[in-house]
Design a protein around this nucleic acid. Structure first.
Lengths: 106, 106
DNA sequence: CAGCATCCGTGAGGATACTG
DNA sequence: CAGTATCCTCACGGATGCTG
């Protein structure tokens, strides 16, 4: 993650990746396994899912925990930073609903 | 603007364009002329500025008013929809600050 | 003053196949 | 199960110049 000209751009650049917002939204429900996230979001390929997850991890928003089991198990959960932006994400969700209403309304 | 799989993606897709967040932030201060916006954001080219402004207009977030004068004058202001998302944008701004702190903190 | 036209490079993201 | 590797496309955005 790189500092931008304005904090709002820092924020946008961090969460604008493909379906990142939805991934975080799902993690608000609690820790999830990789396969669970894939099933929850059938429209994104596994390549994209792992890319986005890795970026979110690098940006300090989520934690990746590997369990040394067979078959392998990997769980994803939010960091404190990820939890902190929950109200913002909720606001964005509501904002998205507003936008969609304004489409339908013409 | 196109409806997405999840409202939060609708929102992100609408404001993820280059410097759109900052443009809206400036318009919270009140109506601004095209040249004012350009001066406020020297790092983005005029081509980009007019592109972003047009997209924001198409998405129903800002209003473009042309004054039939010589020399020409064009003013940009927020629509009700643009005003409605003010708290969200403010939250994103604060979230961006959090992210930047977490960079500096390591 | 407030743009648009044109050209072009880059990288985000899609499709498919393979692996520890 | 949870990824990675490879290849490819196209639209986002940069640079520059022109116009009503």
């Amino acid at each position: 993650m790189k500092k931008s000209y304005c904090p709002i751009d820092t924020f946008i650049n961090t969460i604008k990746g493909k379906r990142k917002g939805t991934i975080i939204l799902h993690l608000f429900q609690g820790t999830k396994r990789y396969g669970e996230l894939v099933k929850l979001m059938p429209d994104i390929s596994e390549r994209m899912m792992s890319k986005q997850l890795k970026e979110l991890e690098n940006d300090g928003l989520i934690i990746r925990t590997v369990f040394p089991e067979v078959p392998p198990r990997v769980e994803y959960s939010l960091t404190q930073l990820g939890i902190d932006i929950r109200p913002v994400l909720k606001g964005m969700y509501k904002g998205g609903l507003l936008f969609e209403q304004s489409i339908e309304g013409g």
